[in-house]
Amino acid sequence: MFPSTRKLLTIITEAVIEEPLLRDIEALGAHGYTVTDARGKGHRGRRDATWGPNANIRVEILCNDESAMAIFNGVRERYYENYSMILFVSDVEVLRPEKF
């Protein structure tokens, strides 16, 4: 079995929008995702996961090109104006590409 290329979308954002964000990315074509707590420092200052309103999450989604563009555009249109968020896309090699 040879690896196949898929897109890895990574979204780092405010934990307060986790539930609606996950519903949206599924509706936009994600078959699955991984969510982890995140902390760090950026343009809007230092954020840690110790206080709910100040918590961040990291959402990772493996998908095909079409789903990646739909999720990228949908998330940008719905959330970028009002929430701290970064989203980046990478090409990755995966086994069992039919899962993504």
Results as ranks from 00 to 15, higher is better:
1 M>Q: 10
1 M>E: 11
1 M>G: 12
2 F>R: 13
3 P>W: 05
3 P>G: 12
4 S>C: 08
5 T>L: 02
5 T>V: 08
7 K>E: 00
8 L>S: 05
8 L>G: 04
8 L>H: 04
9 L>T: 06
9 L>V: 15
9 L>H: 03
11 I>H: 01
11 I>R: 00
12 I>M: 09
13 T>R: 00
13 T>G: 04
15 A>M: 15
16 V>A: 12
16 V>I: 13
16 V>L: 12
17 I>D: 10
18 E>I: 06
19 E>M: 12
19 E>N: 14
19 E>F: 07
21 L>F: 09
21 L>S: 07
21 L>K: 02
23 R>C: 05
23 R>M: 11
24 D>Y: 06
24 D>V: 09
25 I>K: 02
25 I>L: 15
25 I>T: 10
26 E>L: 11
27 A>F: 09
29 G>V: 00
30 A>T: 03
30 A>Q: 01
30 A>C: 06
32 G>N: 08
32 G>V: 04
34 T>E: 10
36 T>K: 04
37 D>T: 12
38 A>M: 11
39 R>G: 05
40 G>A: 11
41 K>L: 10
42 G>I: 02
42 G>L: 05
43 H>N: 07
44 R>A: 13
44 R>N: 11
46 R>E: 09
46 R>S: 09
46 R>N: 11
46 R>V: 15
48 D>V: 06
49 A>S: 05
49 A>T: 06
49 A>H: 12
50 T>F: 14
51 W>M: 02
51 W>E: 04
52 G>L: 07
52 G>Q: 07
54 N>A: 04
54 N>K: 06
55 A>M: 04
55 A>C: 08
56 N>R: 15
56 N>G: 08
56 N>Y: 05
58 R>I: 05
60 E>M: 08
60 E>A: 08
60 E>V: 01
60 E>T: 13
61 I>W: 00
62 L>N: 04
63 C>E: 00
64 N>T: 01
64 N>D: 15
65 D>K: 00
66 E>K: 03
67 S>M: 00
71 I>Q: 00
72 F>S: 06
72 F>K: 04
73 N>P: 02
73 N>I: 02
74 G>Y: 01
74 G>M: 04
75 V>P: 02
75 V>D: 06
78 R>E: 12
79 Y>W: 09
79 Y>Q: 11
79 Y>E: 08
82 N>V: 03
82 N>R: 11
82 N>P: 03
82 N>E: 10
82 N>L: 07
83 Y>W: 12
83 Y>E: 08
84 S>G: 15
84 S>H: 14
85 M>L: 15
85 M>W: 02
86 I>K: 10
88 F>A: 03
88 F>E: 02
88 F>W: 14
90 S>E: 13
91 D>C: 05
92 V>N: 08
93 E>D: 15
93 E>I: 00
94 V>D: 03
94 V>W: 00
97 P>C: 03
97 P>D: 08
98 E>H: 14
98 E>M: 11
99 K>Q: 05
99 K>P: 01
99 K>R: 06
100 F>Q: 01
100 F>M: 06
